[in-house]
Design a protein around this nucleic acid. Structure first.
Lengths: 108, 108
DNA sequence: TTGATCGTACGAAAATACTCGTACATTACG
DNA sequence: CGTAATGTACGAGTATTTTCGTACGATCAA
């Protein structure tokens, strides 16, 4: 489990951010990650096979949305809130709001 | 040129919106569409072949982002601002801001 | 050291998306 | 009517993404 690569936020392209957010599993990961920092991978999307989940983590990492740090045998994941706010002001907040809005709509 | 289908905004899924925004050509279309309403297709992304452009228009329409109305031999396109604001509050504004932010970054 | 846990790496198959040539439909204008 | 203009429909080729089984690496605990 080598150290994972995180792009510099200024190298992240907006299209990559949107591509990363265009999958329901990844959107769910983002939603849960927003609730609390430093959560291990295995609290997210538990119905997804490990190797599939790894793929989605990688897409989110490559898009600069999350940062994973190695702690023991786990990886703790957090949204890169401040950096995203700098690169794309207001975007992450609007995304998180939209996720919740759609969810509450779905609960009807 | 039959009438095109526009989804009801409440049927649009957030992942579809992000997928539609995950392509540079479509992001450019959105950027230009934000500047003025009711623009014909041929003012956008003029370097793209017509059949390719049609594909991107369709993706944007299917995602509920733009609405095209037939006027003469043209189609006039507008962002579905109000509807998007209802479905996903703050999202479109943040997207447009981010597009501009990234552009001004690229102009350095 | 042995075994369990957590997550990644790799690779292959299937599904999706993108590109674009060609043909076509609609409307406008002489 | 004939022709030009605007944009869609279709289909094929290419590229990208997604899924997931298997194998592996790192860490911890007994």
């Amino acid at each position: 489990m080598s150290d994972l690569r995180h792009p510099r936020i200024e190298d992240v392209r907006l299209t990559d951010v949107f591509k990363a957010l265009s999958d329901p599993i990844r959107l769910e990961i983002v939603r849960v990650a927003a609730q609390r920092d430093q959560q291990p991978c295995n609290v997210f999307a538990t119905w997804v096979p490990k190797s599939s989940a790894t793929h989605h983590w990688r897409v989110l990492r490559d898009a600069g949305i999350i940062r994973s740090t190695k702690v023991g045998t786990q990886r703790l994941n957090s949204l890169r809130r401040q950096e995203l706010e700098t690169a794309f002001p207001g975007l992450l907040d609007a995304v998180l709001t939209s996720i919740d809005t759609e969810r509450s709509r779905g609960d009807d």
